[in-house]
């Protein structure tokens, strides 16, 4: 087989016509615009329905699998590793540990935020290691956040809770009483 350097250089040419943002905003090119009305309402299912109802009570609930011994959070009705139904429900604490965090300067549409948001993955106390959720941190300066920081959920007042993950307003720094 003939290997070695060749005169051929690939890709031999680059096709495509670049546009600037103004070409679009000033409609210098032909544009078709559409705003589809796509509406879905997902049934939450057994695991998430229970989870959301417990949020209304100010509680975090997990499921357990006796085969692998995991306390699974967020809860599901099956253990995905053992592939069997879960063996019961257990409450976990509303305290936890920051596994990793980020300071976000942009919103979901990549527009700048007025005030940066601190987002974190929090491993929840009482669940198996690494069993966490993503949420927001509050009552803390961005530069004070560190991996391993202990945090506690700050709940909305009971009458404002609606059974959504936002029933927890944010998580704030917290010191264990035994420390």
């Amino acid at each position: 087989m003939a290997v070695g350097r060749k005169k051929i250089s690939c890709p031999p040419y680059a096709e495509g016509t670049a546009l600037s943002e103004r070409d679009i905003s000033e409609r210098r090119v032909t544009i078709f615009e559409d705003h589809p009305n796509l509406v879905y309402s997902w049934t939450a299912g057994q695991a998430m329905s229970r989870f959301l109802n417990e949020l209304k009570n100010g509680k975090l609930i997990a499921t357990k699998c006796e085969k692998c011994g995991r306390i699974i959070f967020p809860p599901r009705i099956y253990c995905e590793l053992c592939y069997k139904p879960i063996d019961g429900w257990v409450y976990v604490k509303d305290t936890g540990t920051v596994q990793t965090f980020s300071i976000s300067y942009i919103d979901p549409d990549a527009r700048p935020l007025e005030k940066p948001v601190i987002v974190a993955v929090i491993a929840v106390d009482g669940a198996s290691p690494n069993m966490g959720i993503m949420h927001i941190l509050g009552e803390v300066e961005p530069e004070k956040v560190y991996i391993g920081m202990r945090v506690k959920a700050v709940w909305k007042p009971e009458n404002e809770r609606e059974g959504a993950i936002t029933d927890i307003k944010y998580w704030k720094p917290w010191r264990d009483e035994n420390d």
Binding site: W42, F51, S104, D107, P108, I133, I165
Partner: peptide, 13 residues
């Protein structure tokens, strides 16, 4: 849609 979207996440997060 239940666990993450209400927090208004950006992909970069």
């Amino acid at each position: 849609p239940i666990l993450d979207r209400p927090l208004k996440p950006n992909l970069i997060w």
